[in-house]
Structure formats: structure tokens, C-alpha cells
Design a binder for these strands. Structure first.
Lengths: 375, 375
DNA sequence: CTGAAAGCGCTTACAG
DNA sequence: CTGAAAGCGCTTACAG
């Protein structure tokens, strides 16, 4: 225990002595109380600086019976969506003087249980989580700590204990599908996800709603290919869909699935955005860098992360918050869906074209999608 | 302060009363001491469970004057390389009963200063960091906490205070370049990074070494296009290199740069892996999913993250550790560099072909790279 | 506006 | 093997 540089820690008592005031006054100054004179404040500040004093938040937490730790419980940080979400949350928390304890659950409920337990021992003030697949209300009952859920709902519906914050999956997918229909597509393959995931159900609902509105029979117009929401899952689902040789448009559950599908299509010799349309969902940073750039739905990941963090902080500080907050989304039309010269805009999800994206779209002037991909 | 469910916290004193033993005995049981009788241990355990006792690590930390927090200071979690590194580190730390406090510096020294200061207030037991660009020895002097640096060296060399753990950049880039030379390439463009980054210097050194060994004059055989180590940086660098119309092989500073370059090349109408060779470095998960799959150097990100975490834990626990640990790397040949039918293997960095990758390579039977890309 | 005192929930010698 | 006691570094009424 005699590690180098183990001189005794400087405490507020040392600072008090150096400044010639009492311990209490030092504490008041540190906490920014208006109850101290300017003179005292000044003396304490210089004393603290000269002694190299470091505030001990752990001691303060113990005394105040609350900490500024927040658990950030994420299924898979390796998924760019969650990485971007975590970064946004971290920044928002840091601004509010909270610090995230990171936990990756690998999307396993089991690990999530252990993680949550550990986090409680560490006395986190709150929990921001994207529940692992299959997490029910019972799993988080009795957490006893303010919490918020992002992106994924519990298997058994809304919970006052875990307010939900997520994008408007249904409207987004509906706008996306309508756009494809307007561009002549009549046969679709929906790729990835499982019906046990709330996001998949909602996106699928938007998909079906758009088909209905266009007078298309979902059973006729679409095949569904379930799979893991990962690149490899997307690849497998696309392979299955391609074998069916029916769809002119592949709509993926999310961007990562679309990336996997994209690679398979390219390998199959298809030119994505011309021979076949492909779309994603989320608009992760990689989507606009895909070859070809991916048409997708921008769920405003950064806003989602920030909002979740801010909602959690509000709850920690005792405010009432909505049981559910749905963030609007925006259709992003890029090359992968072909050029939409005659695209009709759709309600509050009007297509938006960033200037820097336009030039890449002009490479492929309006080609009508074929109803059967050539292999 | 009357938040719901604010019944008084269960402490070891409550457990002691319930079990009919002293506080000390409870503590000993909790800490797994052999100094208690089996009977006592049992009674304490059941009492703790029945009362719903939660160990208060904060109090224990204060008393023991040490915590099990570790700061995970990362330049950019949005970069898949760092996300994968963080995940590996988190898993290793979790196993050893440490928990990471996450901090994203955005690669800004300024933010890094603030983060480091905050982390000290939170009493972290150690710091695992990939220093922000430009971080010098002075920046972390007097941290006073065990620390390790991963992937990036300080601007002014080795430091006993911040042992370095990184891949063998030089050998990796040398093997990669040699492989390209063996396949007939004579003109290269090196894309991305800045010479102020130790990783770029080392990779460039390996690059030049391989050119030298082949009797090629670096000034003649290669152009260097600096830029941010990001997708957009890669895109810009590739654009510059393409305008020079000299190289048959683009070698990127890392995978992310290669992704950006890949997109530009595809847009320019070139078939990567046939018209032009492109390589990356790191082997992030996305590399094998790129279209075409990216030839790169596997730096074993997971090993690096785990090793850094374990080294840090060793230091925290008082062990001596090497000032520098270099992890071996492995060349991964995929489609983006063209089919290497006659590829010579090179020392301990022999090309390795995973079975599942082979089938994709057979799509493009051995085509000789041209010395001038067609536009 | 400041000082003396109690206490947050633990751990750790120290006696017994 | 167990109990009584001190103390980690803070904050917070409470007198003055």
C-alpha cells in the first residue's frame, strides 16, 4: 500500500487551516453558497489552489446520500447507432455535471441483470438504458432509481418506472414506403428484426399502413425476412429475399441491416439504386458514406441521446416527465433508392436534400426501378 | 426530497441486528473474509437477502480510500475502432470488478483536461486513455493516478507515468506494402493521418521500409496525402491522390480513411480491387463488410482493449508493468487489393484467409493491377 | 457570516 | 471468532 506519491490527501480541513477559516466555510465556498463573504471566498480559493486541493465527490455523495453517477446501459456499443447515442448522452450528461458509468450488455438480459445490480451498489443516481432484447416490466421493477428507456420498449408495454423515448418509427417507415410506392415500386422485401422487438413492430406497422393506403395487399406486395439487426443478419435476410426474386425494393429494419444487404446485393452483381432499391432506417453517420449513399429515415440520434439524458436528469431532480416521448423523424433520400425525380413529398416527413448530397445524386439520373432484379 | 420509495436505506447495522451479530462480522462476511464462522456467514447472508440489503460501495471506497472506478478516456467513440476498443476494455474491467467512467474527448486536449480533472474528483483508481491529438507528457504529469495509454503515444516519447500499449504499426504496414509490391504495384498513394500522430509516423515508417527493401525510391514511388483520420478525411485524400493519376494502390492510414476513399473511388467509376487497389489498417468489424471487403491489417482490437485494461488493473494493484507493450498484427487479404494469386507470405505477418472469406475472393480471379487507373 | 458537532455507511485494528 | 470504537472527507442544521 505504499505506492509512490502517497502523501496524505489534502482535505477541506487543510484548506480551512491555510485560509484561516472553518471547515464549514470552506465547504460553503466549494458549493458556491452565497452565505460567505467575498473575502472568505477569495482566501479559500487561493488556499485550495496553493495546496492542490481536489474535491472529494465520493465523500460528498456519501454525506448527501446522492451521487452524480448515471448508468448508461447499452446493448451493443459496437453498433454505430448506439455508439452515436452514447456519445450524445455523454455530452449532455457532462454538461449537467453528471458522469456516465458505461455498461454494455451484449443484448443479454442476464448480463443486464448483473449490470443493474452492480450499478445500484455504485449508487448511481439514475439509469439510462436501451433494454436488452426481451426485457419486461418485471425485470426492472423495484430498481428504485430514476430511469429512462431509449429506443426499445419493454415487452409488456408502457411503464411509469421507465419512461420511453424513441423516434416515430411508424410515421418514418410509412413515409419511406410511400416514397418508394410513388416511384413505382410494387413488390417489397422487408429485411431484419424480430416481431418481439417493439421497433420492428412499429416500423412494420408503418410499412403496412403505406401499402394499405396505396391499395396494395400486404400479403401480395411484400415478403418479410426476419433476422438479427446486424450486418450479418441483413446479409442473410437479403439473400433469402433475393432468392424469392420478387421485390424491386428492399426495405431494411435499420441501417446496419441495410449495410449487410447492400454488400450481398453488390456481390450478386446488382447495382443498388438502379437495378434494385435499398433503404435503411436511423441515418447513422455511415449511411451517407455508404456506396451508394443510403436512403434512410433520420431518427436524429443525437437528439434522442440528449433528450434521454436530459429527461433522466429531470427525473433525478424530481421533475415529472412524460411516460412516452416520440421524436419526429425525417426521410433522407439518397442514391440507394434510385433517383426520385417525381417524388411526392409526404406530410411532415418531406424529403430533404442536403446540398452536399445533391451532387452525388446527379450521377444517376432518373431510372425507373424494374420489378424484377436481373441476376 | 421526499421522492417516492424513500424508505430508509438498509445498512450493515440493520443486517447485523437481524442476524444477531455485530456490524464488524457483517462487514467481514460481505468482504469474504475467512475469519467468520460458517454459521455467522449463513445468518448474515440470509439476513441481508431478506432485508434487501445493497452494499454501499461509495462508503467502502471512502473508508478504504480507494475506488473501483476506472476512467475510460476516448477521443471519439463514434469511430468504430474506439467503440470496439471500449467494448473490449469494458468487458475486461467488468470481469475484474472495476467499472468504467466513460469520457469522450472529441480528440480535444482542452476537453481532455477538464475530463481528467473531473475524473480525479470522482476518485477513479486508474485511467485508461487514448490521448487526444497533441497530448504531451506535461499534460498528464502529476495525474497521481495509475494510467495507461493505448494506441497513441505522447508527443514527447515514452513516459513511465503512461505505459504505452499499441499494435506493431511498422511491421504491419511493412507486410502490407510488401504484399502489394509482390503483386506488381509500383506507384502508391498513402492516405490520411498527420505526422504529429505517432501511429501515422510508425505506419509510414513501415511503408517506406518496404519500398526500400524492394529497391523503390519512396520519393518516386509514393505520394502522401495527409488528412483527418476520418471518412471525410479519407475521401478528400483519395480525391487528391486520384487527381495526381499516378498510383495503382491507395494505402490508407486506417480503415475509416479507407472507407471514405472507397466511396470516392466507387463514385469515380473505378472498381476497387480491379481497377485500383485499396487497403486499410486496424481491421474494424466493418472492414470485412465493406464492398468490396477491405484488405487491411488486423491489430486485434479486442486484445488491445483487454490488455490495456488488464495492464491498468495490474498497475492499480501495485504491479510493475512494461513501459511499452507492442501487440503483433496480422495481414488480412481481402478483395479490395485484388486477388493475390501469387502473393508471397511475409514472416510473422503471413496472409491469413478465413474460410468464410474465401468465397468472396473467388469472384474476382487474379487480375493484375494496372499502373494507371482509368477514369 | 462563522465554528463546533453530528453523521452518511462502511472498514479496520484492537481487545476480549 | 466477535464487539466497541475510531475515522475516511464531506455537508448541514444549529448556535453564536
Amino acid at each position: 500500500m505504499t505506492s509512490p506519491g502517497e502523501r496524505k490527501r489534502v482535505t477541506i480541513l487543510d484548506v480551512a487551516r491555510e485560509a484561516g477559516v472553518s471547515k464549514s466555510s470552506v465547504s460553503l465556498v466549494l458549493r458556491g453558497s452565497p452565505l460567505v463573504s467575498d473575502d472568505t471566498r477569495e482566501r479559500v480559493r487561493t488556499a485550495a489552489k496553493s495546496l492542490g486541493y481536489i474535491y472529494h465527490r465520493g465523500a460528498a455523495s456519501l454525506r448527501m446520500a446522492k451521487s452524480r453517477f448515471v448508468a448508461l446501459v447499452i446493448p451493443d456499443l459496437t453498433n454505430p447507432f448506439f455508439a452515436q447515442l452514447a456519445v450524445a448522452a455523454e455530452a449532455a450528461l457532462f454538461e449537467k455535471d453528471y458522469v456516465p458509468l458505461l455498461a454494455n450488455t451484449g443484448d443479454e438480459r442476464d448480463r443486464q441483470f448483473r449490470v443493474l445490480r452492480t450499478m445500484r451498489e455504485y449508487g448511481v443516481a439514475g439509469v439510462m438504458m436501451s433494454p436488452a432484447h426481451g426485457t419486461s416490466h418485471a425485470d426492472i421493477a423495484g430498481l428504485g432509481i430514476p430511469a429512462v428507456g431509449v429506443m426499445r420498449r419493454l415487452t409488456d408495454g408502457l411503464s411509469a418506472e421507465l419512461p420511453y423515448i424513441g423516434p416515430d418509427n411508424e410515421a418514418g417507415f410509412r413515409a419511406l414506403t410511400r416514397y418508394l410506392i410513388d416511384n413505382g415500386h410494387r413488390r417489397f422485401a422487408f429485411l431484419g428484426g424480430y416481431p418481439t422487438m417493439s421497433t420492428q413492430r412499429e416500423r412494420l406497422a408503418g410499412f403496412h399502413a403505406a401499402l394499405d393506403e396505396a391499395g396494395l395487399d400486404p400479403a401480395e406486395a411484400a415478403t418479410i425476412h426476419e433476422g438479427l439487426p446486424s450486418r450479418s443478419g441483413g446479409r442473410a435476410a437479403a439473400n433469402e429475399a433475393l432468392a424469392a426474386r420478387r421485390a424491386s425494393a428492399f426495405v431494411a429494419y435499420n441501417d446496419v441491416v441495410a449495410f449487410g444487404a447492400n454488400r450481398l446485393l453488390v456481390e450478386a452483381g446488382l447495382k443498388v439504386g438502379r437495378d434494385i432499391a435499398l433503404t435503411g432506417f436511423d441515418d447513422v453517420a455511415e449511411a451517407s458514406h455508404n456506396a451508394p449513399p443510403l436512403t434512410t429515415v433520420d431518427v436524429r440520434i443525437a437528439d434522442l441521446g440528449r433528450l434521454a439524458a436530459e429527461t433522466l436528469v429531470a427525473r433525478i431532480e424530481g421533475a415529472e416527465t412524460a411516460a412516452e416521448t416520440i421524436v419526429p423523424v425525417e426521410l433522407k433520400i439518397r442514391e440507394s433508392s434510385g433517383w426520385a425525380g417525381s417524388g411526392r413529398s409526404s406530410g411532415d416527413c418531406a424529403p430533404s436534400f442536403a446540398d452536399k448530397e445533391r451532387h452525388t445524386q446527379e450521377h444517376h439520373p432518373g431510372l425507373e426501378p424494374k420489378s424484377m432484379p436481373q441476376r
